[in-house]
Amino acid sequence: MNRFTFINAYTAGAALDALKSDDAITVENLNRKRPLGGGSDLLAEIKEGLIAPDVVVNLKGIGGWNGITFDSRELRIGATTTIAEIADAAEIHQKFAALAQAAHHVGSAQIRNVATVGGNLCQRPRCWYFRNPDIACLKKGGEGCPASVGENKYHSIFHNDAPCHIVSPSNLGVALLALDGKVNVTSPQGDRAVAAADFFRLPTREDPFRETTLRPGELVTGLSVPITESKSAYLQFSEKAEFDWALVSAAVSLQMSGSNITSIRLALGAVAQVPWRLPAVEKYLMGKSATDETVLSKAADLAVAEAQPLGKNAYKVTIAKTAVKRVIRQALGIEV
């Protein structure tokens, strides 16, 4: 671990001041000053030798950034709220099941007790090439993506024309996309609320460095989810029964009239560089019976119609289809 200046910020303004940075999108600018939430990702990045920040700013002392609140319109969760607090909140289980279930699947009990909402949304990818300090890749300012022809069983199955094949590791991001949530951001220019779909970004050749649209020096202050009559669910399939990353996850939020779907938002996780919404499937399912096996099978096929698996991850296409069917059943309380 390198030496760095550690700053405890007690106000949003102080945190922004401490993190003030050159706005240019470079690996250096993105990593010279880093905010600290639970540290479950940041400390690992530092200890593994992936980054060597000059300044680390602790956000956990900022007043008003921790906690879960409701009003008549929306649920708000502060950036430094722990994942465990979400997973344990009865009201979130009742009204935003997808979010609670996504939180429940994060890491282990120990990780959920320290990891935060802001950190979960902003965590760096788990790609084993990215995580190995002895391997260069586009994301770290090097050339090429070794996963494109290498060991890619955990990598993306969509949007593989992109120059980088990571998958977004954020469980909450998948749930947030299905629940039409927003990420609240603060910057020296002011505050803004960003739709989940606009918060996560696909890598480009010019900028493969960021997984979110946050610019250097900007911070997530929390998330918000509109209160609706929808039922929702999140599930994930992993190699191990617990304490493992998703091979594929899925989240859905839907409303029904009898057995027919009247509104639906559906997203897959761990299949692309961002939480992956399925608009064609949503469109297809509108007005159809959610209990009709033929309908669900067609939806599953549609979900992966544009999949472009890499050399070693075609199996994830199969799991993605299963995830689509089962997450809808789960939301409606139907057994596998």
Partner: peptide, 19 residues
């Protein structure tokens, strides 16, 4: 990894043992 000659899962995150 064929390309780099390095072990990719030298940790308990991706070298998985039962819990």
């Amino acid at each position: 990894d064929d390309g780099t000659g390095l072990m990719l899962n030298s940790n308990f995150e991706t070298y998985k043992i039962p819990n």
